[in-house]
């Protein structure tokens, strides 16, 4: 029965748990692929991920190999996007930089979404004092401006990717907690949760198995819409010299170190700029598509 045919997936009478689950996923996929812009966003994201992961193969030069006699060169057959102020190949640096930038973003998402989900669901379901305390803590974190906190971290620790990630994570989770809490509040008094309470299930089980899964879709949508912001924040930190440190190729840092050439050798800072723009836009398109598919309120 484990044949993933179209009929098997779209069957109105699935014969097993697995078939029902895969059928639901397949229907979501069909909905998503019917949205052209979302597919475009998804493809761009995939291309960027593949390009960064495959940097050793796609890069034409060593990203930190300096060639001072050939600095700020125009795009040519040997240097597809030209060279930067130290004669390093921009195309290769952009590919390797994708690893740093996208890697930062992925780590941020993996830290932020679960924390926000847990805090929001527990707070919303427990209510009362627990809710009040947790939400005030959330407010405290929400009150920090992201870049200012990042600067504080850098001052306390050291400039670098880790500090940047920590700073973004600490300031990015509160909106997720708020979102998950709001979702939980609409669910907690629903009859289907009352029915689960009537089985004698513990609150932990109810939150984990019945409430949290319903909050995940809106969080996924929010994450994809925020990914662009995370990339921009990571880039901004790099731009301010607080994120990835030279010679590590990070998109924001690349723009920062070459911004003084923008009028004469415009292609040097433009290439990473376009990369940031494309990835942010792609994630936003994908997020919009996912929201149309996943958000039950939009239906």
């Amino acid at each position: 029965m484990k044949t993933f045919s179209r009929e098997w997936l779209l069957s109105e009478t699935p014969a097993s748990r697995a078939q029902a689950a895969w059928g639901r996923r397949y229907r979501l996929l069909l909905d998503l692929t019917s949205n052209g812009l979302a597919v475009a966003g998804f493809l761009i994201v995939v291309v960027c991920l593949v390009a960064s992961l495959g940097a050793p193969w796609f890069a034409t030069h060593d990203p930190s190999l300096q060639e001072l006699g050939n600095r700020l060169a125009r795009p040519s057959a040997t240097h597809w996007l030209g060279t930067d102020e130290l004669g390093r190949d921009v195309w290769s640096r952009m590919l390797w930089g994708g690893r740093v930038t996208l890697g930062m973003v992925i780590v941020v998402v993996m830290a932020v979404a679960p924390v926000g989900l847990a805090v929001g669901c527990i707070s919303g379901y427990a209510g009362g004092t627990v809710d009040r305390v947790m939400m005030r803590v959330t407010d405290v974190f929400l009150a920090f401006p992201r870049l200012v906190l990042a600067l504080a971290f850098v001052a306390a620790l050291k400039p670098g990717v880790e500090s940047a990630i920590l700073a973004i994570v600490l300031t990015a989770w509160p909106p997720y907690a708020r979102l998950a809490r709001a979702e939980t509040l609409t669910i907690r008094d629903a009859d289907f949760i009352a029915a689960v309470r009537l089985t004698g299930a513990s609150p932990a089980r109810i939150v984990l198995r019945h409430v949290a899964p319903l909050c995940v879709p809106s969080l996924v949508v929010r994450v994809t819409l925020d990914l662009g912001t995370f990339i921009l924040t990571a880039a901004a930190l790099g731009f301010l010299g607080m994120g990835a440190q030279p010679p590590s190729p990070e998109w924001g840092a690349m723009i920062a170190t070459t911004k003084r050439f923008i009028f004469d050798q415009w292609w040097v800072p433009t290439a990473p700029g376009i990369a940031i723009f494309m990835v942010s836009l792609a994630f936003n398109l994908l997020g919009d598509g996912l929201r149309d598919v996943l958000d039950p309120k939009q239906r």
């Binding site: 699935p14 009859d191 289907f192 009352a194 029915a195 009537l198 019945h210 319903l214 039950p296």
Partner: peptide
């Protein structure tokens, strides 16, 4: 207990 509204008393994401 059996609830009034069968549209609200079954978890929408569970088989």
């Amino acid at each position: 207990m059996v609830f009034q509204d069968p549209y609200g008393s079954l978890h929408p994401r569970q088989t």
